[in-house]
Every structure is written in structure tokens, then in C-alpha cells.
Computed example of a mutant assay.
Amino acid sequence: MTFTTRAALQAGVHPRDLYRWRDEGDAIELSRGVFRHADAPEPSFPDLLAVGMRAPEAIVCCVSAAVAHGLSDEMEPAVQIAIASGRNLARIAYPPTTVFRFDAETFEVGLSRVEAAPNEFTRIYDPARTVVDLMRLRHRLGEPLAHTVLNRYLESPGAKPGRVLEYANILGAVGPVRLALDIAGAR
């Protein structure tokens, strides 16, 4: 189980006891103020879990989401998260984090969740939204990466190209996404 310092204090744990647990190995500190019981099952995505606990309003996006969905093998040096424009986020030094600001009106389009640890979930964009975001940000994150993720998505069971186009329309990226889908379909 993962918990924050705030949750521990609200449960009546004295800070001295919390840090003794950490120092004696009874709790593992995943990030500043985020702990996990040492005997808890190993998390699948410890960095996503830590960032999700530090920034519960954020959504895992872009390359981090593509890796979590099995659409890319490229690991970014930082967890990529999105926050709604106009919102502030406390600085997260560890794990390293890159923040994208997405339009507040479309911020939750494609919102899903990933099991970062057994029975512990983190907010993440679904695979179709991830494809569209990488196409929208292809000049910043790399066009080859965006096309690789799109192709892996299209080859995956349950792929929904119509949903990709729907999200592209909502997010203002129909042109490049339609072109990429046409090229991928012509292979």
C-alpha cells in the first residue's frame, strides 16, 4: 500500500515514527512525502505511482503513457504528465517529471487509469488519446516516435482508428492524424 505523509499524519502517525519506519526499512520512500510499505507487492510502475500520489490531478501522458500501454519501448528520462492550463503544480524533483499544459476544456478527453501497483491506480490517457497527443507534439517529441506508436496501436487488439480520429477532431489535430492513418493503412 502507498501513502503520503499527510495521510499518515491524519491517521495519527507521528512524523518521528514515519521516518523511523523509512530508516529501518519498514517503509520505502518513492518520492518526497510518498511512502510504500516494504512488504507490499512490487509496483508495476513505481514512478507513475509516485507522481500520481504527488499530483493526483495530473494525467500521465505522451511517451510515459505510450510505454505504460505497451506502444513504445522508448523510456524518457522523466515521467511525462499533463495538467490543465491555468492550474499550478508543486515541483516534483524525484522522480524527474516533465509537465505539459493541456487545454482545460479537453483535458479529460481520453482519461483512463493504469494499475501502477496491485489495486492502486494512476490517471493516464488511454491509448487512442496517447497516439493523438504524440502526433500533436511530434515536432517536439519526434515524428518517428509518433508514427511508431500509431503503428503499434493499429496492430494491437482492440485498436479503434475511429476513436483516434474522434479525439483528433476534438483536439484540433485531424490533418496530421488522418494523413498518418492513411499512410499506415497503405502499408
Rank of each mutant, 00 (worst) to 15 (best):
A146M: 07
G142F: 00
E120R: 09
R113F: 11
T5P: 08
A50L: 15
F100A: 13
I59M: 09
V174D: 14
T2F: 10
A116Y: 01
G162Q: 03
E76L: 15
D17H: 06
Y167N: 01
D73W: 06
S64T: 15
Y125L: 12
R32F: 08
G175F: 04
P127T: 09
H139L: 09
R163G: 05
A40F: 04
V174R: 14
T2L: 14
F102N: 12
I92V: 15
E108V: 13
D39L: 06
L134W: 00
S112D: 11
A65W: 09
H139N: 14
A146K: 01
Y153S: 02
G162A: 06
E42G: 11
R32S: 13
H147A: 09
V149K: 10
R91F: 07
L141E: 09
H139A: 14
E76V: 10
A78W: 12
R152K: 13
D73T: 12
C62W: 08
P41I: 09
D182Y: 11
I183L: 14
R32T: 12
N151W: 05
Q80C: 02
A11K: 02
L179H: 15
M135Y: 08
M1W: 03
L154T: 05
I183C: 11
E105D: 14
F3M: 02
E105K: 10
A66L: 04
R54H: 02
I83L: 12
G175S: 13
Y125W: 10
M75Q: 14
G52L: 06
V67M: 12
C61W: 00
G33I: 00
G52R: 06
I59R: 08
I81V: 15
A159N: 05
R16W: 08
A84Y: 11
G172S: 04
I81L: 05
G33P: 03
E24D: 05
R91M: 11
F100H: 05
N169V: 11
T148P: 02
W21S: 04
S72Y: 04
S156G: 08
R163N: 04
F100P: 02
A50F: 03
A8S: 10
